[in-house]
Simulated assay, not measured.
Amino acid sequence: MNDTAAERATVLARLEQLVRIESPSLDIAASESMVDLLGRWWRDLGARVRAVRTDAGCTLIADLDGTGDPVLLVGHSDTVWPRGTLEGDLPWSIEGDIVRGPGAYDMKSGLVVMLAAVERLAGRRRRAVRVVVVCDEEVGSPTTQELLREAAVGAAAAIGFESPHPDGALKVGRRGSTRVSLRVGGRAAHAALDPGSGVSAIDELVDQLMAVRQAVTHPDLPSEVLCNVGTLRGGGRANVVPAEAEAEIGLRFIDGESEERVLQALRGLAPVRGGASVTVSVLSHRPAWQASDGDNALLDEIARAGASLGQRVAGRPAAGAGDTNQVGNFGIPTVDGFGPRGGGAHALTEHLSLQSLQERIALLAAVLGR
């Protein structure tokens, strides 16, 4: 099948079906619905399909025979959007070239690209393909990292289907991402009648966050570290010295040495106040992925395939993290950002370009058919 009206209609219908399955992270029933639908489509193309269940939901693994070692196609079925978004703030819509809907851009359109490209090559010689669609990428893939590691064994290359850079460039290299919980324990007391016997967990947390800030801005770090205190919780009443407080911190790293230094500093945090306690826990971790010669060679191969179609393909590192952070550290040539152009990921402006969607299908078909 080539870029025909029939293919475009099929691609759009599939995308709508996926978007209408609202699939927030950790919604097990939604992930199972996604895998049921995707699994049926992949079986129709001759794939051997497995559904692997974890505490976070259901992950799809599909294998299609072909020439050589398989190309690993990496995606995710979960979104940041809660159920009800489709009927509320972000309904499914098509306006000219623009499609909107929760998860349409990040990254259900990428899942459609995989299917359509393989379908376009039906009956023709192409590379063997292994597809992995995890259920918990948006929360750091805490239950599926080992599945990815197993799926990557024997793969010749890996392509991630996250959104590209705004200009359509692929992503080769990503910052590492680590989420940390910083929990502080204190001692409750009446804030007016007996304040001296209390230990404020909130005051302690403020001082600990200052220490975190010093650690991530230390002048001896090899590269910049991004730090975002995403959530704060603690206390309950203004007349009670708070006994508990907690912050969730997002850290982004360019290189592994900076990451290890910062995490070592956080693991060494000690209470400032007598009677207080400090506990640091890593909630999720993705290592920094720095582009290798193999990654750049894969990008060059994709660029040559694009040139045969009249497409100009470029690539550069990205600030955000994803599952290719892990795959890129396995020593497998890896690129990401193979989803279509668009914008508004994680925002009410989420959208994608239908023209770009078709271009990505053609590009992937050219890569797999080389």
Rank of each mutant, 00 (worst) to 15 (best):
P219M: 06
S277H: 00
L269F: 01
G294Y: 11
A247V: 02
G235P: 03
W289Y: 07
A303E: 01
G250H: 04
H218C: 00
E204R: 06
G196A: 14
V229R: 10
A291Y: 06
S197Q: 12
R273G: 01
H285R: 15
D220W: 02
A243V: 07
L209E: 05
F253H: 10
S277G: 04
I249K: 08
L232H: 05
E257A: 14
G186K: 03
A303S: 11
P271A: 04
E204S: 03
R273Q: 14
R213M: 01
G185F: 01
G256F: 01
F253P: 08
P287I: 10
P271R: 09
T231E: 11
A243C: 04
R261A: 07
G294F: 11
E248M: 04
A191H: 13
L209Q: 09
S281W: 01
A211C: 05
V280N: 00
Q264M: 03
Q264T: 14
A211S: 13
E257F: 04
I249F: 02
S258M: 07
L205V: 05
L299A: 10
D203L: 09
S200N: 15
V216D: 07
L209Y: 08
F253C: 04
G294N: 15
Q214E: 15
T231H: 11
I249R: 08
S177W: 08
G236K: 04
A243W: 03
R261W: 04
Q214S: 14
E259N: 04
S284Q: 15
E224K: 13
Q290I: 08
A245L: 08
R237D: 04
H190Y: 06
P222A: 12
G256D: 14
R187N: 01
D300K: 14
V240F: 06
E246Q: 15
V278G: 00
M210L: 14
G274V: 06
V212L: 11
L298I: 10
R273P: 00
A215T: 09
G256R: 15
R233Q: 12
S277D: 01
I202F: 05
A189I: 05
G186Q: 03
D220E: 14
G198P: 03
V241P: 01
L263I: 06
Q290M: 11
A265K: 12
I254S: 07
W289E: 08
V282R: 15
V262E: 13
A215G: 10
R179A: 12
P219T: 03
V212M: 10
D203F: 02
L283K: 15
D293P: 00
E204A: 01
G186H: 03
E301R: 15
A288E: 12
Q208L: 13
R273W: 01
T217N: 13
L209C: 05
S200F: 03
C227Q: 03
A303G: 05
F253E: 10
V262D: 12
E260L: 11
L221F: 07
P219L: 06
N228P: 02
A192I: 05
V278H: 00
G250Y: 03
D207Y: 01
C227W: 00
P195H: 06
A245E: 09
V199E: 13
L283F: 08
R267W: 01
S223N: 12
A192H: 09
V240M: 10
G185Q: 02
G235R: 08
A215N: 12
V184Q: 00
D295A: 09
H285Q: 13
L209K: 13
H285M: 02
M210E: 14
G256A: 15
A201K: 09
S200Q: 10
R261Y: 04
L209I: 04
